[in-house]
Design a protein around this nucleic acid. Structure first.
Lengths: 196, 196
DNA sequence: AACTATATGGAGGCAGCCTCCGTTTGTCAA
DNA sequence: TTGACAAACGGAGGCTGCCTCCATATAGTT
């Protein structure tokens, strides 16, 4: 995860050539756009064309459709993690539900991307392990604070809650208000209440 | 929906020929299996081959991959609807949550199928309208009973709740216990409580 | 048995995935 | 600068899967 900010090849011995790096970024950007517009099934050749590179170049950088999607996925996750850090100060319950609301809103704008991406979840791929770790580091403290403050039920795991929220975000409906409503219902179930 | 039980062609003027009907069923059965095994992306030619028919035949019965998936979808929905009717007698809250639990369990066994199917939700397709109507007829009474009995919060719509539950069912995890747990959290949010 | 509407199956056109390799280009040392 | 070479490029081409079309076969009818 952290490596993606510094350019992915830093981990390798030799640095990439300048043109290679440029193309890498270009493809990534174009792909993000293209997938958002035309859905995850957009032809890779179309993406290559739009990026002004040959299909061979695309494939050298991203050996498969999957690889390209994963690279995008990493960016998405990063952005979500970042947004958690701005909520440190607020009321514990507010902070948590605010984060989830942002998460939902964020996923909504990227429905095609994020939604489809998550279907690729090969749950044991190291990439996703890494992402889960990052998400955990970003969001779990928010949950813990809520639990410590007694406003969140204690018998839930962070990842469970994440899954729930993401599941809700992916609900196919044209009305975003409905999703928010469903989220509110679900979060109500998360609140701690004396009678258990 | 109702037509699908009586053989789908009843709605047309002339009845299908016997061989046609046989092939129709054969393809449907093989497709269900194949999709369950190999995921939704199984080649249609593979399915035709397994069913012992030509690809042309498959395409006459199901003019597109989508059409085939939809035909399967209808069956799934029917089964779920049927299961709602066995719960008429029980305690209102029990009946509702039991239905959802069954629904989840059912979807779990058909993850590949049901999960992928729902991604095809073209929300305005008449087929889905019809399915929604059926689901509504089957499940809404359960919800209403709960609301009338004061055990379910009154500010929720049936379809919202359905979406929520299905969203949870689709969560990608290898541990089914986790899904059940998440469902329980979400249903807790559905319960009515005095303080609102 | 003959007739015809209905159904069959697979060849073939098309599109997208991915590989391979001859050509180009950035980089670096002299 | 220039030369040399590893690195990167790009697109032709093979492959597979989607779907159409139509010559052929057959169930059902008279």
């Amino acid at each position: 995860m952290s490596t993606a900010q510094v350019a992915p090849e830093t981990r390798l011995a030799r640095p990439k050539r300048a043109d290679a790096r440029r193309n890498y970024e270009k493809i990534l950007n174009v792909a993000r756009e293209a997938f958002a517009e035309g859905g995850e099934s957009t032809a890779l050749e179309e993406i290559a064309r739009r990026a002004g590179v040959g299909i061979g170049t695309l494939y050298r950088h991203f050996p498969s459709r999957q690889a390209l999607l994963e690279a995008l996925y990493v960016n998405e996750v990063e952005e979500v993690c970042r947004s958690a850090q701005q909520l440190d100060g607020a009321d514990p319950w507010e902070a948590l539900s605010e984060w989830f609301e942002r998460l939902i809103g964020y996923l909504a704008t990227k429905r095609a991307l994020a939604g489809e991406l998550l279907n690729y979840l090969d749950l044991d791929a190291p990439l996703f392990q890494e992402c889960r770790t990052s998400l955990y580091a970003a969001g779990a403290p928010l949950l813990k604070r809520g639990q410590d403050a007694g406003v969140v039920r204690p018998d839930v795991e962070f990842l469970e809650v994440m899954h729930m929220v993401v599941g809700i975000a992916k609900i196919p409906t044209t009305d975003p208000g409905q999703i928010e409503h469903i989220l509110r219902i679900a979060l109500d179930g998360l609140r701690y209440r004396a009678e258990g």
